[in-house]
Design a protein around this nucleic acid. Sequence first.
DNA 1: CGATCGTTTGACGGTGCTCAATCACCGTGG
DNA 2: CCACGGTGATTGAGCACCGTCAAACGATCG
Lengths: 294, 294
Amino acid sequence: MSQDFSSYNNPIISHDAWEPSHCAGGSAAEPGPLQELIRLMGGDPSEVTADAEDFPLRYWRVRQNATLLHEGATAQHLFVVRSGSLKCLKTLEDGYEQVMTFAQTGELLGFEALHCGRQPVAAVALEDTTAYALPIRELPELRRRYPVLDKALQMALSRQLVRAADTAEMMAAVASDVRLARFLLWTSARMGEMGQSTRRILLRMGRRDIASLLGVAHETVSRSFTTLAEAGYLKVENREVELFDLDRLRQRARSTRWLEEESATRRAQGERQSKVGASWRPVVASNRQVSVAA
Amino acid sequence: MSQDFSSYNNPIISHDAWEPSHCAGGSAAEPGPLQELIRLMGGDPSEVTADAEDFPLRYWRVRQNATLLHEGATAQHLFVVRSGSLKCLKTLEDGYEQVMTFAQTGELLGFEALHCGRQPVAAVALEDTTAYALPIRELPELRRRYPVLDKALQMALSRQLVRAADTAEMMAAVASDVRLARFLLWTSARMGEMGQSTRRILLRMGRRDIASLLGVAHETVSRSFTTLAEAGYLKVENREVELFDLDRLRQRARSTRWLEEESATRRAQGERQSKVGASWRPVVASNRQVSVAA
DNA sequence: CGATCGTTTGACGGTGCTCAATCACCGTGG
DNA sequence: CCACGGTGATTGAGCACCGTCAAACGATCG
C-alpha cells in the first residue's frame, strides 16, 4: 500500500480508490489514537482507560475535491474529521448541488445513514483532509467496550443537530448581505473554537458553495461581499477575508425582516452579548399549559 | 464540564405548570410502556425483554400552544412524541420566530441540549399532545439496562439528522410555490409513514409557521396556495388540503433554479420513483482520490 | 354578537435572479 | 516566453418575483 499517485487527478475513475491507512496504535510518546479521537470530538481524553491501546482506529486520507461519502452509497463507516474540511451536499433531482453544511475538525460524518442504510448526503473534501473511520458493523461493540467513546459520540450527535439549526438560522434572513454576514460570523466562531483567528479567515470553499448554503445565486454572494466591504465591515480578496469590526458585523447580521434603518443608532447601548451563550431571552410568556393524569 | 443546576434560570416565569403524568406500568392486556416507546421510535418492540416491566416511563401532556421545551431552559428530559404534533423554533435576536421543523409522533425532542446544557430550540404544541419523557440524568443507566432502547435512540437521532436535511432541501427552491409544493409532499410522505392518507391532509400549523419554515412571507404562502390550486394540483380550504395529482406535484417540486418551462413535456417518460427511497443515482463520477499510508 | 386572530387579495416598490461580458488566475503546451 | 483554454470572481443591465403595507373577508370563541 505504498503511495498510489497514479489515480490522482484522474477525472474518470470508475471505481473508488480510497484505502484506509493504518494508524500505528499509539507509541509511548504520542497519545493513543483513541485519546486523540475523543479530544477531537470534544470529550475528555483523560477518561480513556489504559486498555485502549489496542483500539483498532484507522484514518483515511482524502484529496481535495475527492468525495469521502458518496450519496446513495451503502453505509459502512462513520467518520470523524481529523484535519481539513469538507462540504456536505445533497444532489437534487435536477442536478443542483444543495450544500447542507461545511464540516471541520472534530465533526461527525455519515451518521444519517444509520436510519435508511444509505448515505442521504455526500461529503466532498474542500482541501486535503483526513478522517478517522469507525466501522458501523463494529460500532455497538466499540461503544460497549469504550464508554468514553460512546459518550463522545452522543455529544457529537447533539452538536450536529445544533449545527443544522445554525444553518437554518443563516438562511432565515431576507437580505442576502445579512445572510452572508451571518455565515461569516458563523465561520469566524468556528475558527475561534479551533483556536484560530476569528478575524482573518481563509475560506476553503468557492462562492458557488457559499451561495448554495445560503440559498442565493453565486453572483449575489459576490455582490454582498462588496456591499459589506464598502460598508467597512470587512476586506475581501478572493478567498481571504478580514473582519474589521465583529460587533458591527453582528449588528448587521441581527436584522431579520423589516430591514431596519441602516442608522443603527436606535439601540446602540448595552448589546454586548456574544451572540450565542449569554443572556437567554426570558421567554416572552403567552404560554398556557396544563397537566392531566393519564 | 460543570453543569449549571441552579434550578430554573427563568426570571419571569417562576415555575412551570407542567406535570408529568404517571403512565401505569403496562397492564397485562396492553403492551408495556417500553414496547410502546420502541414501536413509536421505529424500533422492533419484540426485542423488549421481560424485565422491562418496571421501566419507569412517564409521559407528559401538553395543551395546544403550550411549550414543551423552553428555549434556554436547562436540559432535564428527552422527549419522544407519543401523539399530536409540535413546531420546533428558534427565537432570533430581533424576536422573529424561525420555525426549524415540525415534529410528529415518534420523533425525538430535546437532544440538542446535551451539547450545551440548555435548549437551543423551543418546542410548542400545535395541538393537544403527549410525549414520553426520559430523564437525562438517568439516560446512561437506561441505555445500559435496555439495549433495545439504546438502539432505538440511535435510530431516532439518525432520523433527526435526515429531517434537518429535508428542511434545507425545501428552502433550497427559488420559487415560492415550489417551496410550498415540496413542503406539501414532505408532509404527505410523513402522513403516509404514519398510515394516514397521503392525499387528504389537515395542516395543524398556521400559514405564518409554514412561511417561517420555508423562509418566505406568510402572504406569499397564501398566494402560492392559490397558485397551485389554480393550476389544478390541489384544493385548499383553510387548513384542509387535498392533493389531486401527486406525480404532477412532484414534477412541479422538482424545478430548482432556472425555472424550466411549465410545459413539462420535456421528459414525461419513466419518472415513477417515490421521491425518497427508490433509484439512488449511481454517482456521476468526477471524483479523484488517493490513499497514503499514515 | 362583537372582538380577535388567521387568511386572502390587491398595489407598489425593491431585491435578487438571469443572462452576459470582463478580468484574474493557473497549469499546459506550443 | 506567451497563446491557450478552463475555472472562478466580479460587475452590469433588465425584469420578474416577492416583501411590505393595506384592506377586506372569514373563522373561532368568548
